[in-house]
Design a protein around this nucleic acid. Structure first.
Lengths: 209, 209
DNA sequence: ACGAATTAAATTGTATACATTAATAGTGAT
DNA sequence: ATCACTATTAATGTATACAATTTAATTCGT
């Protein structure tokens, strides 16, 4: 997952710790179920426990850590996350259909194109950006923030979806793109719902608990 | 606002700090726009800066504090919060219509009744519980958590709605209750949307920025 | 008197020390 | 061997110390 946060430069110890710890979890360096101890992580990252605690608090907010244990997302949890996502991104797709400009269409088209031609990493990134662009159409920072906070968990599974090459993934993006461009708000919402539901179902098929 | 959090007993300094600070903001003891300084609050609450920092982080997550400034919610911000609320509580009302049992109906009826007969504080509380009960119908901890995190901001305005006695507030609750009891999911969602929209519009009427 | 430059004061971020609590490992009795 | 109990260890929560920033105040030149 690319780092979108704006604190990649200023490298406060807390932000650095957050990113390192998050990436360790997302990469599987810290396997799900593993116990997090502040001291260990602190020496790993090379800072004191104070900024580590802050990082852990952030990651607990993202549900990547639940009382000091690296989360092993269950089927149920994934369903819950996607239910919220469907509501918020469905609404966002509706907004996109109503308010998007020519420039926005171009971005979306570009992400669809990369979805067809890019490398795996590029596809992952394009997938992410496609959804991000639509979410921004809500023009609602609260909503954007909520989706952002679910990104880590989402990432854990979008990897599955992309690397296992879920059928129709990009086709669906393209249809959504066209529907948004045609300003068909109802259909855009509906298609986004179906698209996310398909992502969820595909991911669930590969979950092993 | 009554304290629902489960940490009111164990009184960790951080939780205590969180509650004190939150209540100071909600009561207006710390007026919106006020600058929060860790040291001052620490001596106020009688703990060190460490747990205060944790409390501030939590309150920033709830958007009650934004970079050390007590938030003064703008019209736009309130609209954004309610947009999310409408999506999530609308869905929850739908779930309630589909899954609620006799016992749940009784709770709802009770909160409607208190809405008609109770003192101001009791009405506030009943209003809160009415919505809480419906949100729980989603049976989705992620969703419940998100609403919970918006509670402080919501509270700031539900006070206005109740003390200024918004017309039809309780009537709307009653209609929603009846619709849920009649298992009419579509209408329940629609009525909840309208109800929250009315709350928003009424609140906006008294906002002074 | 006004604004730029410099100094002083306050505030935050991080590290560390200590006290409390939770987890682990022994020990002994049945 | 198993369970209860104690002793040990480790980990967390909180306080404090210090360094790095930020903010406010002061001085100076024009």
């Amino acid at each position: 997952m690319q780092n979108n946060s704006d604190d990649s430069q200023q490298t406060s110890a807390a932000s650095k710790a957050y990113e390192v710890l998050r990436d360790m979890i997302l990469n599987g360096d810290l396997p799900s179920g593993a116990r997090i101890t502040e001291g260990k992580i602190a020496t790993m990252v090379g800072v004191s426990r104070t900024p580590i605690r802050e990082a852990i608090q952030r990651l607990e907010h993202e549900h990547l850590i639940v009382n000091k244990i690296v989360v092993k997302p269950t089927e149920t949890e994934l369903r819950h996350t996607f239910q919220v996502r469907i509501l918020l991104e469905g609404y966002s797709a509706r907004c996109a259909a109503m308010f998007f400009t020519e420039k926005d269409f171009e971005s979306l088209a570009e992400f669809v194109k990369i979805g067809r031609t890019g490398s795996l990493d590029e596809i992952m990134r394009a997938n992410e950006q496609f959804h991000e662009t639509i979410v921004r159409a809500s023009n609602n920072p609260i909503m954007i923030d909520i989706i952002e906070s679910m990104k880590s968990i989402i990432y854990l599974f979008s990897r599955t979806v992309v690397t296992r090459e879920r059928p129709f993934l990009i086709d669906e993006h393209e249809t959504i793109y066209e529907t948004i461009k045609a300003h068909d708000a109802d259909k855009a919402e509906q298609l986004m719902n179906q698209h996310l539901q398909a992502d969820l179902d595909f991911s669930l098929h590969f979950i092993n608990n």
